[in-house]
Design a protein around this nucleic acid. Structure first.
Lengths: 188, 188
DNA sequence: CTATAAAGCAAACAGTCGTTTGTTCTTCTT
DNA sequence: AAGAAGAACAAACGACTGTTTGCTTTATAG
């Protein structure tokens, strides 16, 4: 049975922050240990390898985004509104919730060969959520739904590279203007 | 004056390939040296530091994409057609030309603190090209041109993560279907 | 209050990292 | 043919890497 002073959550937080800031390879176990005021070797009481630490962060990241998006979608009924709610939630999870979610889209599975399969599986599970939302949309039969999904999700994920919070810009406003651009294409 | 057996181009090729495959931090100078059958220290005759090697690859990558896109755009006059040509050229440069171009969008400036400023400058120069193309478009006055650019360019850049060449999919067909989705939104 | 298991310390392991230095080979110029 | 400069070798530097081992502290269950 775990103790109440268990610092595993702190380790995960620090790892998520550092993996997001510097990437997986450039973050050392000593960096993470120092961030939680521990000795490097002590981390191995909680994780048997650096990759497992990444997988743990990844799992939590996917869990957080999925949860937020599911909750947001559930509040609406109209297909386009549901997709917009999902886009907003996705972007807010990425740009506001912070470290865990960003690690998921910033650290590439191929950078961690031994854990790649597990990471891809986690990502794919999440992708299916958006596939379902796009499938609901009332679209002209010639519209390519897969392209629509990839266009939206790609643009949302890429926003990490240029987004800076300020008065005019917010994750919500960006997601909305993206959706507006896509939505009007499919009206009669 | 350089000698005719100068192997600097080979070094750049190998570095580009490895940086693309494994990322900057996970690629060692020894990896690169081994790929061109050299000793690690010999690389320092051509580059004073690992970061400079990355910057050199980056410069070549930006040069290649810019060249391809400029040439493609110049072949057309109608604004939407010009943007489509740019999107196709951009995606082909990324997914077909290969290593150099992909390094530019795969290696983040923030992962190389000492060279970050130089890398960002190179990227921004390229971005302006797309800004100009979007500015040419005949759009309803309420359309957000910046969002349109970010939506398109983000989706194109993200495609590196899911694209696999096959009979039905090609860089050209993807760029075209993305543009079709955007274009129809802006028609009367 | 004591036994038990959780959590972390302390110190080291073998290997890898980017880089430097002095020397040697090889192409090119004249 | 001889000298100069280009290019790479050979070997090492100290710092840093992920990880292991044995021992100690500390909270909690009985």
């Amino acid at each position: 049975m775990p103790r109440s002073d268990n610092r595993l959550p702190l380790i995960l937080d620090a790892a998520a922050r550092l993996f997001r800031e510097k990437g997986y390879a450039a973050t050392s176990m000593r960096d993470i240990a120092a961030a939680v005021d521990m000795l490097p070797g002590s981390l191995y009481y909680h994780f048997t390898a650096k990759e497992d630490l990444l997988v743990a962060v990844y799992e939590e990241g996917v869990r957080l985004i999925t949860e937020k998006v599911r909750a947001a979608v559930a509040r609406h009924a109209e297909p386009w509104t549901r997709l917009e709610a999902a886009a907003v939630a996705h972007l807010e999870a990425l740009l506001k919730t912070g470290d865990y979610a960003l690690v998921v889209i910033r650290v590439l599975p191929q950078d961690v060969p031994k854990a790649a399969a597990r990471l891809v599986k986690l990502r794919d599970g999440y992708d299916r959520l958006f596939s379902e939302l796009v499938a609901e949309l009332p679209l002209p039969p010639e519209t390519d739904r897969q392209s629509l999904r990839l266009l939206l999700l790609g643009a949302l994920n890429w926003s990490q590279h240029w987004f800076r919070e300020n008065g005019r810009n917010s994750p919500r406003s960006i997601a909305r203007s993206f959706l507006k651009l896509l939505r009007e294409a499919q009206k009669p």
